[in-house]
């Protein structure tokens, strides 16, 4: 009987190894280990055994059963794993097909650049000021030390609504408006973005364009502070290795005045087509606020100093993105706008 049991065990093990599916395995379990299975059938014959043989055979029978059950569990687990694998394999998709098209719009590149500029100056403690786009001659010119018939008015060809009302040619009037509101309090630290208008229209000029003005007024604000502020701005805007260069220049409302160049963003200063092989790109005008401008705005110019700067956002956007025609920025071709 012991032999029969061992034989049965061998036979069952063999079948289990051959089983190709969980269903087959279950059939084998029922056939050998079920209530009406072969092992039970053999054990039913135990009655014919002697009393001393019975426990020994019983022990063998239990051993065989335990071994088979263990084998069954192992085999069942591996078959389950197999089934799972097959299922996952059959569920595969082409992950290289295009994804569902979401709604994707975009911010105009000029405003994207403006937001970037604003963030840099917000981080330096500047607030953002705004002013009217249609200005008076006084704020656009006279208060900025540009009396009527001043030759420097030729620098800005102006659109007029009437003799005294015009489309502002620069964001600088916001300087005076802000100082008038603030004086005699100190400090004033603002940037003023906005649209400005000049009578020009070609590949590098647009009759409407965007400027950002900056103004810092306090006791003991120096030209060196202007340099440091704009050098910081240039590094933030164009990358940490950007070098700035200050060239003497002239604006009626600043003295001393400076044009600011940055090392060419394309070639890093070696010289290329973009920088006309000079290694430098002119990006903004700046200077120390002219004493007359401080005085008309309500500050004592002996005590209080300040710096101001102004830059064209178009120029900066064009440099940043490598755009070669300013008109593209105002044509609003969706194929252009999608690129930003």
């Amino acid at each position: 009987m012991k032999d029969k049991l061992h034989e049965l065990g061998e036979q069952a093990r063999g079948k289990m190894a051959e089983a190709g599916s969980l269903e087959e395995l279950n059939e084998i379990r029922v056939r050998f280990l079920g209530k009406k299975g072969e092992l039970t059938r053999i054990l039913r014959g135990m009655g014919s055994l002697s009393a001393e043989e019975r426990p020994r055979v019983g022990q063998v029978a239990n051993e065989v059963r335990a071994a088979l059950e263990e084998e069954l569990a192992v085999r069942s687990a591996s078959l389950k794993e197999l089934v799972r694998e097959q299922k996952l394999r059959s569920e595969g998709i082409d992950v290289t097909l295009p994804g569902s098209p979401g709604q994707r719009g975009g911010i105009h590149p000029l405003n994207a650049v403006l937001e970037e500029i604003q963030d840099i100056f917000l981080g330096l403690g500047y607030s953002i000021a705004e002013g009217p786009e249609i200005e008076t001659d006084y704020y656009n010119f006279e208060a900025l030390n540009l009396p009527k018939d001043h030759p420097a008015r030729d620098m800005q060809d102006t659109f007029f609504i009437s003799g005294e009302i015009l489309l502002r040619t620069q964001t600088s009037p916001v300087q005076v408006r802000t100082m008038e509101k603030t004086a005699p309090e100190l400090p004033v630290k603002i940037i003023a973005p906005g649209k400005v208008y000049r009578r020009d229209d070609d590949a590098t000029h647009s009759p409407m364009f965007n400027q950002v003005e900056g103004l810092a007024v306090d006791r003991r604000i120096t030209f060196s502070d202007l340099k440091g502020t704009l050098a910081h701005f240039a590094r933030e805007m164009f990358g940490g290795k950007t070098i700035t260069r200050f060239r003497p220049s002239y604006f009626p409302f600043t003295e001393p005045s400076a044009e600011v160049d940055v090392s060419c963003v394309m070639c890093g200063g070696k010289g290329c087509r973009v920088c006309s092989h000079t290694g430098w790109l002119e990006i903004l005008g700046s200077g120390m606020v002219h004493p007359r401008v401080l005085e008309v705005s309500g500050y004592n110019s002996e005590d209080v100093t300040g710096f101001a700067f102004g830059m064209g956002i178009e120029r900066i956007a064009m440099l940043k993105y490598g755009i070669d025609d300013m008109r593209l920025l105002f044509e609003n071709d969706l194929r252009f706008l999608r690129q930003f």
């Binding site: 917000l122 607030s127 953002i128 400090p187 630290k189 306090d218």
Partner: peptide
């Protein structure tokens, strides 16, 4: 300005304004 431009703008250091601090605000 006359003195500064001949002296060289490049000789001025790069500093940031100090004094009363301001919070940048939109």
């Amino acid at each position: 300005e006359e003195v500064a431009r001949m002296y060289g703008y490049d000789k001025a250091p790069e500093t940031l304004p100090f004094g009363k601090s301001t919070g940048g605000m939109k």
